[in-house]
Design a protein around this nucleic acid. Structure first.
Length: 434
RNA sequence: GUGGCUAUGGUGUAAUGGUUAGCACUCGGCUCUGUGAAAGCCGCAGUAUGGGUUCGAAUCCCAUUAGUCACCCCA
């Protein structure tokens, strides 16, 4: 009817995914894990539009990120609109808006789709779905302990065993104090230091050392001390290299409390990691990530942190907040590798095969009766041969069938067949059940 | 955004620059109008798109698009 170039492409838009039923089944499984864990901890679900005023992100992230990494456009009313690239500003906005009437501590979660305008590649798409978990109004480390405990439960639900992953912890207060107050770097140098530290595991030890000594041009001694700290293998070693004066520093105290608190809950695969930074500027205290230690993967599964100052942007006084985001892309990958996929994918519990069109009304009626009993019933209205209908039910993974022909309609007696075994049992309308 | 690699029916693949682009699976039909999974037969369907080189291009070149990898960025 038309030649090739006139036809529309069946491809999805660059960097976004179609979810065919088989894909959607996995997605539903992931969302199910997320919801179950959140609700088990008494968290309430909230939602918001994907559209946000662009200023929301400008305030925090700066022009460059808004212009280059978000979907931002001007609407018909000359407003600048952004497709939300993350949920935290939205939830901060919502909490700030109702601060006076909400009951704190607030435990909220959401599963939004987020957009970013970036070069897609494996594991990085332009639209993804992310669980966001946040607790507002808890200043103490109890917030960290509860939320990280949830992160642990989710990771376990993906199918990972304790040996497959570790929870890496750091504290921004501590690192800020070290770079600025102890080692005397100015704001720009401290910023560069944290970017460099973030990359430590990606670049060679030589390149890293070179970068650090450049930051401490005139003070090679400080550079050496700083490097020793950054190269410490565990918390004890790190602590022993710290100057005595900061023993009582709040960041350090918080770290200890969190580690201890998690240990008390039986979560022992927690590791202090002084090189963990996490990109966000708004983090103020604890930062953490769940890291897949399987040599085949070795990647960050998800992470989060404390952002006690963010709500102040909306003119309120501070509200302490701690939360994390977990994406669906890595979750899919993990669930597939650790083989925790749902096995029963069938759309229905039973298929009704109609033998002879005159028996359709009876069949539809039977289907309604069964549905009222809670069964998922598919009526084959294809008018095909019985063999084809059964074959079709089999392909769909529907476990049971019942054929409705003249005889069944007349007597009310029918046979229900289990396709996997071929076994048939005599049933009546009342005795059929899944 | 920058650079590298890749692109053949729906899927997976084959084809020294030289017949009508082959095979398997899937899908549809039939053997087979009251019972599927097997077997057989028949059929649908492809060189991503647009140019170029050549007597001749799936094959070589350029661009585009998409995927992928690295950089960038990391929510």
């Amino acid at each position: 009817m038309s030649n090739k170039q006139d036809k529309l492409s069946t491809d999805a838009y660059k960097g976004v995914r179609d979810f065919f039923p088989a894909d959607m089944a996995i997605e539903k499984k992931i969302f199910g894990i997320w919801r179950e864990v959140c609700e088990r901890y008494g968290y309430e679900e909230y939602g918001a539009s994907v559209l946000e005023p662009a200023e929301l992100y400008r305030a925090k992230s700066g022009e460059e990120i808004v212009n280059e990494q978000t979907y931002t456009f001007t609407d018909r009313g000359d407003r600048e609109v952004t497709l939300r690239p993350e949920m935290t500003p939205t939830v901060a906005r919502m909490v700030a808006a109702r601060k006076r009437e909400l009951v704190f501590p607030l435990r909220w979660y959401s599963i939004p789709n987020l957009f970013r305008y970036e070069q897609p590649q494996r594991g990085r798409v332009r639209e993804h779905w992310q669980l966001n978990v946040d607790i507002f109004g808890v200043e103490s480390s109890a917030a960290e302990i509860e939320v990280i405990n949830m992160a642990y439960d989710i990771t376990r639900a993906y199918g990972l065993k304790d040996a497959d992953f570790e929870i890496r912890l750091n504290n921004r207060k501590l690192m800020n104090y070290l770079t600025k107050d102890v080692f005397g770097l100015d704001d720009t140098a401290a910023q560069r230091a944290s970017k460099l530290i973030d990359k430590k595991n990606k670049i060679s030890a030589e390149a890293f050392e070179l970068g650090i000594s450049e930051l401490f041009k005139d003070k090679p001694d400080s550079a050496k001390k700083f490097l020793t700290l950054l190269n410490s293998k565990n918390f004890t070693e790190f602590a022993s290299n710290l100057p005595q004066t900061i023993e009582e520093h709040l960041g350090l105290v918080e770290l200890k409390r969190v580690i201890k608190g998690l240990e008390a809950l039986g979560i022992t695969n927690v590791r202090f990691d002084q090189t963990l930074m996490r990109g966000f500027d708004y983090y103020t205290g604890t930062v953490f990530e769940v890291f897949d230690t399987n040599p085949a993967n070795r990647r960050s599964v998800f992470g989060g942190g404390r952002y006690d100052d963010l709500l102040a942007l909306f003119g309120n006084e501070k509200v302490p907040a701690f939360g994390f985001g977990a994406g669906d892309v890595v979750a899919r990958d993990l669930i597939e590798t650790y083989d925790t996929l749902p096995k029963d994918n069938s759309s229905a519990d039973i298929a009704i095969i109609i033998v002879g069109d005159q028996n359709t009304p009876y069949s539809l009626d039977l289907a309604q009766t069964l549905r009222e009993k809670g069964m998922r019933v598919l009526v084959d209205i294809s008018n095909k041969r019985v063999g084809d209908q059964i074959s079709n039910a089999n392909k769909r993974g529907i476990p049971k069938i019942v054929c409705i022909g003249d005889e069944e309609v007349k007597t009310g007696k029918m046979k229900m067949k289990t396709l996997a075994t071929g076994e048939e049992i005599a049933v009546t309308e009342d005795s059929i059940c899944a």
